[in-house]
Design a protein around this nucleic acid. Sequence first.
DNA 1: TATCCAAGGTAAGTT
DNA 2: AACTTACCTTGGATA
Length: 307
Amino acid sequence: MERGVITLSDLDGRFDLQATVESGQTYLWDRADDGMYDDDPALGGSAWYETVVPPLETVGNARAVVRVRQVDGRLEWESSTDAVPILTHLLRLDDNLDAIRSALPDLPLVRRSFDAYPGMRLVRDPPFSTLVSFICSAQMRVARIHGMQIGLAREFGDPVAFDGRTYHAFPTPDTLADATEADLRDLSLGYRAPYVRRTAEMVATNEADPADARRMDYEDAREYLTRFVGVGEKVADCVLLFSLGFLEAVPLDTWIRTAIADHFPDCDCGGYEATSRAIRARLGESYAGYAQTYLFFALRTGRVGEE
DNA sequence: TATCCAAGGTAAGTT
DNA sequence: AACTTACCTTGGATA
C-alpha cells in the first residue's frame, strides 16, 4: 500500500472534499463511516472516502483502489498506487478555483451559493460509470442514486483486494450488458433497468462510446449522448459536465428550473435548448456549469433560500 | 397502520 | 417542435 499527502495550500483556491463528493455530482465514492448524505456537514469533515478507479485514458493508470480524507488543510490518501495524479484528475485539483470564482457573474444568488461551499470543485469521473449513474438519477433522491451504484458494483463489479478488504470496481459495459432486466430491477433500478442494460450493450458492442463526445463541440456532444437509451438532454449535460470536462454545460434539473423561474425568469424560453443557451449566457459561458453545481447544491441543502 | 407523494427525467404517442 | 402520459421504487409526510 502507498500513502501520501496533498497539501491544499499548494492548490489554486480552496478545496472541500465532503462538499465535492457529496454534492450530487458523483455517486462513485463511498464514505467509510456510512454517513453519506446525512445532511450534517460537521460529521463528514474528516471521514474517509473510498473508490475503485478504472483505467483512465487521460491519466494512463491501471485500475486502482483509492482512499482519501481531508484533515487540517491537507488531503491524506492511501492507495494501491500513486494516487496524486488520480486525485488531481478526479477531483479537479488542477482547476484554479480563485480564477473561476472571479470569472463567475456577480449575481447575488451565485455569490451566496459559492459562499455556502467555497471549496467545492467539480469532478472528472469516468465516462461509462457517470453515464450509468445519471441514467439511474431520473426521478431519484441522491442517497438512492448512490445506493444503486454501490449495489451495481457489489453485484456485478470485479472484486479488488486492498488492505485486507475486498472492494468492487464499477461493472464493465460487457458485464452490465449481460445482466438481465430482472437482475437490475432486483437492485431497485425500477424502470431504469432496461435503460442501463441497453446502454451498456451499446457501449459493449462499440455502437457508441460516451468518451467520443469529448472531441465534439458542446451542443453536438449533447446531441450525441442522447442516442443512449435513458439519456435525454439533462442527463447528457450531466455526463458532459461531470465527466467530459464541458464546464459550460448546465443540466436543467428541477432545482435549476425553479431557480430560473424565481431569479432569471427571462431565461425561461420553454424548450430545453433555448433555455440552456439563455442561462449559459447569464451564468457566463466558460464556467456556467460550475455556477449550476453551486446553485444546485446550495438550493438542495437549503443554504440559500428563495428570495 | 394505511395512503399519498415526490424524488437531479425519458420514451413513446398526439397534436 | 411542444404537450401528455406512463413508468419502478421507496422514504418521509400526512391522516
